[in-house]
Design a binder for these strands. Sequence first.
DNA 1: CGGATTGTTCTTCC
DNA 2: CGGAAGAACAATCC
Length: 287
Amino acid sequence: MPELPEVETVRLQLLSKILGKKIEKVKVFNEKTTGKDKNFEKKLLGQSFLYIERVGKLLAFSFEKTENQFLLVHLKMTGQFFYLDKEGLIGGGHLVTEKDIKNLPNKHTRVAISFSDGGVLFFNDMRLFGFMKVVDKKTKDLAWGKFGPEPTGEDFDFKALFERVKNKKTSIKATLLDQSIVAGLGNIYVDEALWQAKIRPDRKTNELSLGELKKVIKAGGEIMKKSLEVGGTTFKDFVNVQGKTGNYTKYLKVFDRQGEKCPRCGKVIEKTRVAGRGTHFCPHCQK
DNA sequence: CGGATTGTTCTTCC
DNA sequence: CGGAAGAACAATCC
């Protein structure tokens, strides 16, 4: 669920809340989240966060006192952060009711980090695919290096990307979902970008021209920037902790709109399976 | 109850 | 060995 705009939203919200605050208590509710690291709590105690970086959908928290240590966090499908302080809650996520928020930690809370000013950061993750792990700089750099460029970047090298994928025989959808090729797009924004660029999701990557590739990457970047501006996308029961849904949902052209009319040509939007994922597209104007 | 669900990684197959 | 397809991960919903 969380793709680049949603993860970036969470990053910005956390930046304004947790930097520089001393970590007084760490509680791990489910060891799977922390990779069964027995020393996870010990590594964070007494530290304070210096900054939060993001590449694609991966977050890295750095520390004030320890240069060679990072907290890597991936939300995967259902991970979510909530920060609770005297003024209330900030954060983001989905499948959250007001009742869940009021009762933190709840049954999906996997880790809680308490700060000296009384604030508490909760990491919830229903399906347990997400992770929080403490790594050294070398490991963090290695993880960072696996990501391709983000479509939102100003200086995206389209030619280099074209050279990289021009012989790939898989679908363009699979290529765009591959984080090592392009970082940040997930199932929702890939479908949207392909619709915007008028390209069928099941087209073979090697059959796309440089122009088409450029078009779909640019569309992906624009769509994700717009989504970030309006607080991300709500799919199913998403609400953020302020009880507000992500506002990009109403801008979606094809995702989860199977059976509805294509806003461009009026033909019916179909849902199929491409690259193993539910895929929405207009069979008439996407070629 | 079978099938599907956002992301990523591992396994299997060719 | 590399690439690609599919399974797996876990919980929940319809």
